[in-house]
Nucleic acid binder design. Structure first.
Lengths: 101, 101
DNA sequence: TCATAGTATATCAGTCCTGATATATTGGCA
DNA sequence: TGCCAATATATCAGGACTGATATACTATGA
């Protein structure tokens, strides 16, 4: 499940989650959500490249499998901070992170 | 005040702020802090390029001048989320953000 | 020197994020 | 089909982040 295929669905979730604005997201909000989805996809890819399950990654992060699932779908309840820390925990460097963005 | 000049100072602040580990940061923690400092510097640069004061930027972000000051020094109490939202509010795009990282 | 704009530091209540738990769903294989 | 590992969804208490306020510091000009 990648950004492109999922974007509309996620965007809808965000839009109606933000009760304040039924007419859509501002460009800033959209940029923020897109960034998050890119990081989420990068996390899933990197996890699989490391041969880990969500549970396994959760252990490394001292978190739970359910939260990792949230992270990988770019859930609104997950911060960019958490995603970035997850990527670093999987051995990603700043250079590679920049590419994923 | 840029990343290179400030790194040691900030790092020290983080190290002793983290009471758990007096022997230094893990590579992940270090990567996280460095990323934050890069974003902080980018924010200051972008704000000045836009001819804004901290107070002016705070208004755009619906935040306060004091928080913007925190953001620009990469304070531990500031999240990457907030920094990123600040950069997007200043008109930065993902491409440019990637460069700043 | 004084005044002023700009920036930095300290503190705090309310909100959002986080890890945890429980449970449901999915996907692959025998 | 039935079983099992892996992933997804729902919920919540506790802690981290945020905006706000007050105040201190700094630099520049008159």
């Amino acid at each position: 499940m990648n950004v492109e295929k999922r974007k509309r669905l996620e965007a809808a979730g965000w839009r109606f989650g933000n009760a304040a604005d039924f007419l859509g997201m501002t460009p800033q909000e959209e940029a923020y959500v897109e960034l998050k989805l890119h990081l989420a996809d990068a996390l899933e890819a990197k996890r699989k490249a490391n041969g880990l399950t969500q549970k396994g990654l959760a252990a490394r992060l001292q978190s739970s499998q359910s939260r990792v699932a949230m992270m990988e779908k770019g859930d609104p309840s997950v911060s960019i901070d958490l995603l970035v820390r997850g990527l670093f925990a999987l051995g990603m460097r700043r250079r590679e992170l920049a590419k994923a963005i």
